[in-house]
Design a protein around this nucleic acid. Structure first.
Ligand SMILES: [Mn+2]
Ligand SMILES: [Mn+2]
Ligand SMILES: [Zn+2]
Ligand SMILES: [Zn+2]
Lengths: 143, 143
DNA sequence: ATTTAAATTTGTAATGATTACAAACAGAGA
DNA sequence: TCTCTGTTTGTAATCATTACAAATTTAAAT
């Protein structure tokens, strides 16, 4: 349940389907996200991939995430006070951020399929529901 | 509807009720927020108050907002990609951020009184619902 | 009123995430 | 091979936020 193996081919097809040229770096970033499902920050991705791709540049991570976000492959979560976190776009769901350990957990959508295209005359592109608190694991450690 | 006049006394009482010593700077910050209702960033507050308080330090704004947040007088909104925004805590409501002009608008809560104390075993302290898109005014200007 | 201690404010330096930018590199034809 | 285009890389700049200590203000004690 932690690290589902995903083939390069799968990721490659995914990228091509979204109109993104599947470079080695782009495949690596998306593969990491699909496997870890950990809503990583730029640095989490970088620190992991640099061990396999010694020439990797942080700028490439920024470029790739920006591109994947524009192509609607991934969402950027403004849930943390300090850094953006990213998530592969699949079924709609909400997020819980632990203020203690910084982990972000998926939670069932707190409200039924809420995707209004318009609110108060404003053009709505996306809606994110962010819960914050202390995760069960951190709370256990506190006792 | 834009700039409701609020008396110093009112703000002072508000602070004292929450256990915050009402210094001149703290009163100024909270008064600004109550009047403008614009979900300001640190810099928006600073740029406005510096005209009346020439000795004001940005650090004081940071200190004050952190204190008011801890005392649950204001909420910090992680809705923008670039900076924290702040909002006086009153009735529960949601927010809409315009990606064009950066303004944040109040919107009716998209879901009925959703304040679960626990989700998936996690301890929930707060839930924020953030919509993003293009505000009506900006869309009008685009045509 | 003086003195003392505590709380608040201020200014400056450091940190850290993100962006800007230009050079280096790689791949696909011609 | 040459050229064009897109991608990656490294470095510098920007900007929000935090760290920290000195200066100032406030409140309390004598
Ligand atoms: Mn998720
Ligand atoms: Mn609001
Ligand atoms: Zn935790
Ligand atoms: Zn707008």
């Amino acid at each position: 349940m932690k690290n589902s193996p995903i083939s390069i081919e799968t990721v490659k097809n995914l990228l091509e389907a979204k109109g993104v040229k599947p470079s080695f770096q782009r495949i690596s970033v998306l593969k990491y996200m699909l496997q870890k499902k950990n809503h990583p920050s730029v640095d989490m991705i970088y620190q992991n991939l640099i061990t396999q791709i010694p020439t990797l540049s942080r700028t490439t991570i920024y470029n790739t995430l920006k591109l994947l976000n524009k192509k609607r492959v991934i969402a950027s979560l403004s849930i943390s006070d300090t850094e953006l976190r990213y998530d592969y776009i699949s079924d709609p769901h909400d997020h819980f951020l632990c203020k203690q350990c910084g982990q972000i957990f998926d939670i069932d959508a707190l409200t039924e399929a809420m995707e209004p295209k318009e609110i108060n005359g404003h053009d709505v592109h996306e809606v994110q529901v962010n819960a914050k608190g202390i995760c069960s694991s951190c709370r256990a450690k506190m006792n």
